[in-house]
Design a protein around this nucleic acid. Structure first.
Lengths: 185, 185
DNA sequence: CCGGTGCGTGTACAAATGTACACTCTGTGC
DNA sequence: GCACAGAGTGTACATTTGTACACGCACCGG
């Protein structure tokens, strides 16, 4: 060891860049996420991009990792705090109909992830892990079969909710959720 | 009118460009769809791009229009030919579990459409019309409420099917479809 | 056969991109 | 105080991009 022994000048800068990249992706899409635009949004010089990341792909991938991490945190919390089957079902109704678990911007980010995953192995793994996480959060409360069905219902209905812009009727969603979580294997 | 009175030299060229653009989007994503690459794939010179289309956005939008047109054709045919509730349910099982109604490539194309729709009003309308078409095809057989629920189920489960790469169990899907199409409003 | 019309295209160009890298500067050990 | 290691950056560059537009050329009326 010698002078300047590996201590970064601005710790946390890498994280701030990733956050800026995610915000940008949620607002404008992956297509808008260039080194320069992300750097400007994060308030860091262009050189920081290539210094902290191996390339653009790594930045975008890390941004998606952050998105999935946030989402799965909320997901798990909501389902984990449910103490009964009824509460679990109500959590799911809230996930589908509410605006708390996932915002329209974040929903759009998930589409970007699914698209981007086609040309980035790392991002494909993140997309895959996101599906695993949501599925395993559901198996805490339901049978594997029911979990798969309700997982599909959540995925599809949140998409229709946020793409159409109008929240589905809570009673209808509750009925459907109850129906698919009452399947006998 | 005078010489060369508006007769195109190569009718159908515009359509071939649109088809090439769609193929490219399905294979490589919207990000890869540049004027030059689409032109090369369609076997037409670069100048044809700006001659037949107002800009790149129009080409991509038309490609998505073609995709949705193909998909909704199959969709409608499958459901329209169903003569009973049971047959309609079986059609839906086939849509979700089969590889005929929508291929993995086309599924990916739908993601691209949902993403691209965020920055293109025309494409957003196409995405919206796709959801309308699938919904109205379902209301031929089910109540509006059931149609909404099964629509979400289809959307989510086809995504999980083609993103995960493994077809869901037909019996399970049939149970879930039957459950959500047996809701009393 | 000839002139012109307008369909179709090759080329040119400004803007933006990802990335490499020579450089600066800060702080540390002696 | 000094030299240096290494964190961090501004610039330069080759490439690719969308688009405009001046031209070529095939065809039709005469």
């Amino acid at each position: 060891m010698s002078a300047r022994s590996g201590v970064p000048n601005d710790p946390g800068r890498r994280e701030r860049i990733i956050q800026a990249a995610l915000e940008l992706i949620l607002d404008e899409g992956v297509a808008a996420a260039s080194h320069r635009v992300v750097a400007a949004r994060a308030g860091v010089p262009l050189g920081s991009m290539t210094y902290h990341f191996s390339g653009l792909d790594e930045i975008i991938t890390e941004a998606f990792r952050l998105l999935v991490s946030r989402l799965s945190g909320r997901y798990k919390d909501g389902l984990h705090s449910s103490k009964s089957l009824t509460e679990a079902r109500e959590s799911i109704v809230e996930i589908i109909c509410g605006d708390e678990f996932i915002t329209p911007r974040e929903m759009a980010g998930i589409f970007e992830l699914y698209s981007y995953g086609r040309c980035s192995r790392d991002s494909a793994e993140i997309a895959s892990s996101w599906m695993d996480i949501s599925h395993s959060a559901l198996t805490e409360h339901f049978t594997p079969a029911s979990a798969r069905a309700v997982d599909a219902l959540i995925e599809g209905w949140t998409i229709h909710h946020h793409l159409g812009g109008v929240a589905p009727d809570r009673d209808l969603v509750r009925s459907a959720v109850t129906a698919v979580t009452s399947l006998n294997d």
